[in-house]
Amino acid sequence: MAARLAEEWFTICGGCEVTILDIGEPLLDLLEKVQIVHMPVLMDHKLFGQTGEKTEMEIPEAEVGLISGGIRTEEHKLLAQEMRRKCKTLIALGSCACYGGIPALANLYSTEELLTKVYRESVTTDKNGFPHEDVPALTDRVYAISEVVKVDVMLPGCPTTPEMVAGALTALLEGRPFTLSTKSVCDECPTIREKKASSTLRRRLEGPEFTPGAPLNQMRCLMEQGFLCNGPATRSGCGGSDGTPRCIRAYMPCEGCFGPISEKANPMVDMMGALSTIGLDPKQIPDRAATFNRFSGAGRLRPAVKR
């Protein structure tokens, strides 16, 4: 019998859903084993009953629940709780769900600041009041799913990788545990490391030195070339079975989309420590918090202190 699958999306771009499509052919095998019972991106499903007769949001029971996106509204919170209630195994799909993702950059500001900016100060909007009726209230900040309900499996990445989604689902369906890597991006990075000390940072658009066509293990570590790379503080796995991290493959430094390696870790603190030790002037680093915790703002980013 096919396993029932429910999917919800909160604050998200939809990229992680596309990732599911990107699984490609194996998806067809997978789809045979599941029965999608709830998935707003695919099909209409009324939360308050087909006629709106219910007073509380309800979704069908499922073996597997997927949530993409972080929690931004009170409705998300309730839905997350409902998903948790109804799904045996709950999966956070993508870095937004796992760590807040890009939307959690909003956590750098207070809700009031945000609203003022968006609804009053932004040049493209009419200077009206804040929306209040007919839309769910905002939460005080963006939360990762795991901050609100227990999450069984995290599939980080922005977007997450098809391989990982397929792997995780297959494992779950077959009753095998699915675990994430505890290594960092550097573990999978093939570049050469010679000497870390680098006194000035280079802008991304300058582009690193490498020999086109040559294997990546002949390119020097991008950090050593002066590009801020989040590799040491970012969980590995983005490269999938190929092994080489996705950004590196594109001659770009790691953005950190796979999030921190452990729940307790704070990539900003870890990277700032390492970078200052090798002699980099910490003041040189632009937009510290957003640079290192770009994808993990839930619980790690806070509004700047007014002094």
Partner: peptide, 8 residues
């Protein structure tokens, strides 16, 4: 993971 920050 061999990031090599500690070496120098």
């Amino acid at each position: 993971d061999g990031c090599a920050y500690c070496v120098d």
